[in-house]
Every structure is written in C-alpha cells, then in structure tokens.
Design a protein around this nucleic acid. Structure first.
Length: 428
RNA sequence: GCCGACGUAGCUCAGUGGUAGAGCAUCCGACUGUCGAUCGGAGGGCCGCGGGUUCGAUCCCCGUCGUUGGCGCCA
C-alpha cells in the first residue's frame, strides 16, 4: 500500500491507507486514544480503541517515527474532518527521546538560545519550519523571476585569494599552504560574468567576519545577487529590483500560503513605483545632521515609518549615498560626483538590499583606486577584465534572511535561519 | 569593542540575608472523543563559576564565564 500524506486523507475517505510520520501527540483516554501523526503535509488523527494497539501507542513517546495503516473515516469531530480508524501502528525506529520542550504546543515556548541549541528538533515546530518554507519559496521566486527575464544563474567561488572590499573583515583559511579567505560576496565574479551573459544572478552563502552582535547580523548569510549590463544608470537596476521583489513575493504567496497562514502574516504589496529619496533628503527626513556620512539604524527605522505614512509603502529606496561610504567600484553620480549612483532598499525600516551602478571603464578604475590611495595590484585580476570591453552595468544583493525575518515579523534573524552562524555560535 | 539586562528544576519563570517555589514536561493513577485534553499524586535543584562581607549568601559586593538587547558596521 502506497504511503499518502496527511493532507490527502479526505480524498481516500472510506478506503484503507498507509501514512507515516512523527508521533506529534498522544491523548490517552480510558476507552479511546488519539494518536496525532505529523508528516511533511501536516497532521493526521488516528483513533485507537483496540487494547493491543493502545498498549503499543502508550509505549511510543512523542517524536517517535511511526507508520500507520487504517481506514479513513469522515468525522465532524475530528480536527481535520477525517481520521484514521481501526489502525495498525508500527514504529519505524526506536522510541524517541523527548525533546527538552514541547513541539505539540501551538507556540514554541523555549527561548531563542534554547531553540538554537536544539535546532534539529526545534525546527520541527510548525512555526519554525514555516519560516523556512517561506525562505525556500522566496529563493524559488527570485530564481523564477530572473530566469523569466533572461538572467543566467552562476556559481562563483566561495574561497578567494583576497578580500572583495578593502578593510573588510574576512575569515582566513589555509588553502594547500597558501592564505585564502571565505568570500564576503560574489561581487567581483558576478560583475565579470556580465561580460559573458549580460544578466546573471546567484544564490549563495557569503561570509562576514565582522563583530556585529545584533538581531540582524549573521557571520554567514544567504545573498540573492543579481547583476545586469546595458543600463543607463542605477535607476534601471532599481526597476529590475522592484520587479524581482514583486515576482519573488508572488511566488511566496503561491507556494508558501499555508506557511504564511501558520505564521499569521500577510505579504506586503510591492508598489508599482517604490518611493525613492536621495540620501541628503533622507537625512532631513530622519532628523539627522546634514553632514552625517551614513544612515544609522534608528534613521532607517524613522525612514521606514515615513515611507509607510507618506507613501503607504513598506519599501523605500535611498539613492545617492556618499561616494566616501561606498566601495571603489561604485559609479559616481555624474551630476554630483561626491554622491554615488548607489542605493539601498529599506524594507520596514531595515536595510534589505544594497545596489547600484558600477564603474565599467578601465580608466575609471585606475582613477578610483588612485583616489583612494590603493594599489591596483591586489585587484588586477578583476580590473584588467575591464580593458576587454564591458557595458555600463549595475546590480544588487538581497539579504535572504533579512527578507524572511521582515516578511514573517521575526524580531531576530536567527529565528528564520536553520543553523545560524554568528559571533558566538558555530554549532549545531 | 562600548553600554544595559539576565543566569534558580528538562522548559518557562517567581522568590527571600536563616540551605527554595509555580506552571508545563517526566513517572504513577483516574477519565467514552480528545482538540495546547482534563483531574489526583510522586520524583526532580552545588540557585552559572570563583572570591569577599556576614554567625549565616541563591539574595549584598568584586571578578569571571555565558546568554540577551541597544550602539558602532552592514545585507
């Protein structure tokens, strides 16, 4: 008999079926026992009246993996409207050791560190796995949207010989006796691949050895990167980003609707035109001094509230960040060279995306590095490629975990990361 | 790295200068259909670690380790 998933039970009403999953919960009454089985699709109720079967169920603690065959019966008093009766129950493994907290409660009451310490079982809780389903759907949506726009998915090295950004903190490792580093971003490689495919994207891990100990930082996170050629300036990149976000969220709605319902959240609308403010304007809105070189988290939160209030938008572009705060490959604003054609996208007051137009002329790279007092030599493999012809181009990178955290309302990015890596956590 | 908070039962927390409590979990028992089942009983603690003050410290002080929130920085 073929195994079916719990959400298919109703289609087999009156028939005999086989299900399998984890003992989610047992409710043992005098004359009847209920066995709730959890599988990938949800929960199924099994009704046990036979004394021998009941004795077997009593010996199977929560989280034990079992296989159940029985008859599907419609019953209005069953949680799902159907249940399995007259069952045989067979454990598929040894009786489970109970987790340190209850997985069958509607909310996971363990504190976040306890959950993270016990991630393999904590993630089984519907609230935790739902966030991971949203994450998976977001990645699928990112890929689908860009595939449909003739982007080509690439895979770039995660071990590199030098850091992407000068002065940034990298994880050093030994590469056959030579110094090497974990990649902080696919930045250079995706830019070079514009010369091959015009439009590329990558979904992959990036590593930041920065001592940021906050609810929005991880030492390893998943970057949704895209880069495209033949743009006029950063505004073309912003338009593609807007499209990509809309497409991504559409797929999240389609594929993770049940997960969103579990979490009790609704997807935000991506405006047809995401409001955009220049950096100098953003400082005024946030009430920051005009000579501030960057936006502080409090400023970003204020801007997020402003965007919602003034534009009814959960998203806000901030354009024209000062060149001084952007990496050397950033394209300046031709009209105001102290400001860049770089932008950030704030989502609900949190920096979600960084992007912009990049330099595409070899001579501009030489000048940019010279102006920063940096040698070309460490970047030669990257910069030299621009002698061979590159179109005007730009791109962006979305922080996946930040996106999911903001979508699901999780206050801490670690809640939506299966096995987070941060300053303090290297296991499990 | 700086500033703050916290560290008591498996989990979540209360508490007091006189060697400790609750809810849930666990174990035992009861219960004709549960819906986070319910009810009764039992077991379970170097009160993070080290030092100090005190007749006496889980409580006060210092240090240390760990956790956590904010900031710097970033996606």
């Amino acid at each position: 008999m073929q195994r079916i998933l719990s959400d298919q039970l109703a289609r087999h009403t009156g028939g005999a079926v086989r299900i399998a999953g984890w003992v989610h919960r047992r409710r043992l009454l005098k004359s009847v026992a209920f066995l709730i089985v959890r599988d990938a699709a949800g929960l199924a109720q099994v009704v046990v009246t036979d004394p021998a079967v009941r004795a077997a169920v009593e010996a199977l603690p929560e989280e034990t993996v079992v296989e159940v065959t029985g008859t599907v019966v419609g019953n209005a008093t069953a949680p799902a409207g159907v249940e399995l009766t007259d069952p045989t129950v067979r454990p598929l493994g040894a009786p489970a050791v109970p987790p340190p907290f209850d997985l069958y409660r509607p909310t996971l009451t363990a504190s976040l560190p306890t959950q993270l310490d016990n991630a393999p079982v904590a993630l089984r809780h519907p609230s935790r796995s739902a966030a991971l389903r949203v994450s998976a759907a977001a990645v699928a949506g990112f890929r689908a949207t860009l595939d449909a726009r003739r982007f080509v998915e690439i895979h770039t090295p995660k071990v590199v010989a030098s850091s992407t950004e000068s002065g940034a903190n990298v994880f050093a490792l030994d590469w056959f006796g030579r110094p090497a580093y974990l990649a902080q971003s696919p930045q250079f490689y995706k830019q070079l691949m514009v010369g091959v495919f015009e439009r590329v994207y990558e979904v992959g891990p990036v590593f930041r050895a920065e001592p940021h100990d906050t609810v929005r930082h991880l030492a390893q996170y998943t970057s949704l990167d895209a880069e495209l050629g033949f743009v006029t300036d950063h505004r073309d990149v912003m338009a593609v980003l807007q499209d990509t976000l809309a497409g991504t969220l559409d797929v999240v709605g389609d594929r993770a609707g049940a997960a969103l319902a579990t979490l009790g959240v609704e997807l935000p609308a991506v405006p047809g035109q995401i409001p955009a403010v220049h950096f100098t304007e953003a400082l005024k809105i946030a009430g920051a001094p005009a000579d501030e070189p960057d936006l502080a988290p409090a400023h970003e939160r204020a801007l997020g509230e402003w965007a919602r209030r003034e534009h009814g938008s959960e998203f806000l572009f901030v354009t024209g960040y000062p060149m001084a705060k952007r990496p050397f490959y950033t394209h300046p604003d031709p009209a105001r060279p102290a400001y860049s054609n770089g932008f950030d996208l704030l989502f609900r007051g949190l920096e979600l995306v960084t992007g912009g137009q990049r330099l595409h002329r070899y001579a501009d790279y030489l000048a940019a590095l010279a102006a920063r007092g940096e040698s070309v030599e460490p970047y030669a493999g990257y910069v030299d490629a621009f002698r061979h012809g590159m179109p005007p181009y730009g791109g962006f990178a979305i922080g996946l975990e930040r996106l999911v955290a903001r979508l699901t309302g999780a206050p801490n990015i670690r809640e939506v990361t299966a096995f987070p890596r941060d300053l303090h956590r290297l296991t499990p």
